[in-house]
Design a protein around this nucleic acid. Structure first.
Length: 393
DNA sequence: AACTCGGGGCA
DNA sequence: TGCCCAGAGTT
């Protein structure tokens, strides 16, 4: 290990100076984020789960809507999973929402509805690893627990001029020990947040603002002119291209939707029937779509038109989605929740169904189309209830 | 120690 | 299109 790292780990005065500098800076620079206005463990927990692999700006709106709907653990534990997922829709990594929901039930069952205060008990909840447990308990209760995540990996790597891949097991061990070593005895929660804030606002991936960094003087990467090289870049992901087809099956004013099963992507969410297909939307595409729906779901359809083509990414996949508009002809569809969980729903009902993002996008197209088609003469009796869809970005 | 989980935003 | 993001859980 480099000398500066040893200094940080060994010299208590140096560590105290570092902590003081960072905390003082944070006191004047901390952003006003919604989850910083509370010390309620449940609220902090929700924020930390949402923030996993997700940027702050994206989370803010979701956090506020989620807590408005589920203000405490018991409310969340008692909620329908569909409502939980509906509020998570668009945030991605939906397993987080299902695990949060399951953990809420566990908190009610095992801890009387009180969020646990011991590291081991928190760590035992689904979806909570070392980072999240340390974050919740340090921020909420000032327990002296270190954290290590995207921002602080970068900050600490630069601070000690870590030459190795910070993702390696060896480096992680080093970084966790540094995170623990520099953690002051008091204001641990503020300090942990300050470190993340520093990584997010000053010690950025590209062109870090060293001129305004409160700890530039003890930064080894800075001293060695290596801020551009540290942390070592991750090897770029290799994408796999996929082409899939989604079919909008119309029957009167209803549409056929299917719940994604465990083991599939978007498990628990709903989508228009979707399957892997050829790359082009030609004659054979129509035929194979018809055959696929018949053999897969037992539904006979008559293709109407190619509705749209959309591209989206899912982890390491790049998906081109061909969307086919079709009419239901025949075939029995069990309208229940048993797998494969098919349902006929109206456009209005879709507002409450948790859909994957592409499903929501298609729904938007259908609503648009319906509005355009509607002639002034065919006026239906006004609906008394208008359901408001959550805004999609 | 890798790999996967199957996401989404933004320049 | 490439890079990044307040990681967790498995193999």
């Amino acid at each position: 290990m480099d000398v500066p790292a040893d200094d940080l780990l060994r010299s208590a005065p140096l560590r105290r100076k570092l902590a003081r500098s960072i905390l003082t800076w944070f006191d004047g620079a901390a952003r006003d984020l919604p989850w910083r206005r509370t010390r309620d463990l449940y609220c902090i927990w929700v924020s930390e789960i949402m923030l996993q692999q997700t940027q702050v700006a994206t989370v803010v709106g979701y956090y506020e809507r989620f807590l408005a709907a589920f203000p405490d653990v018991r409310t969340l534990a008692a909620a329908d999973e569909a409502r939980v997922l509906r509020l998570w829709e668009g945030l991605g990594y939906y397993r987080r929402a299902r695990q949060l929901h399951a953990a809420a039930k566990q908190v009610v069952a095992e801890h009387g509805g009180e969020f646990p205060r011991s590291y081991e008990a928190v760590r035992a909840l689904p979806g909570i690893g070392r980072y999240t447990a340390g974050a919740i308990l340090s921020i909420g209760l000032d327990q002296r627990l270190p954290i290590l995540e995207a921002n602080t990996i970068r900050v600490l790597s630069r601070l000690i001029a870590l030459r190795d891949d910070p993702r390696s097991t060896q480096s992680q061990l080093t970084l966790w020990s540094v995170a623990e070593a520099i953690l002051p005895a008091e204001r641990c929660g503020a300090f942990n947040q300050a470190l993340m804030e520093l990584g997010s606002e000053i010690c950025t991936p590209r062109e870090p603002q060293c001129a305004t960094c409160p700890v530039a003087v003890c930064c080894a990467a800075r001293a060695q002119g290596l801020t551009k090289e540290i942390p070592l870049a991750a090897k770029k992901t290799e994408y796999t291209d996929l082409t899939e087809t989604a079919v909008v099956v119309r029957r009167g004013n209803k549409f056929l939707v299917r719940q994604c099963q465990p083991g599939e992507r978007w498990a628990g969410l709903w989508d228009f029937p979707r399957f892997a297909s050829a790359a082009v939307a030609d004659e054979s595409w129509l035929t194979s779509a018809r055959e696929h729906l018949a053999s897969w779901l037992g539904v006979q359809i008559e293709p109407i038109a190619h509705l749209t083509t959309t591209r989206h990414g899912v982890t390491r996949y790049r998906i081109t989605l061909q969307v086919l508009d079709a009419r239901y002809v025949s075939g029995k569809v069990a309208d229940d929740l048993a797998p494969p969980s098919l349902r006929w729903v109206t456009l209005a009902e879709l507002a409450e169904v948790p859909l994957c993002v592409t499903g929501r996008k298609i729904t938007g197209l259908l609503a648009e189309k319906k509005t355009k088609q509607k002639s002034p003469v065919q006026k239906k009796p006004a609906r008394t209830k208008v359901k408001r869809a959550q805004p999609t970005r």
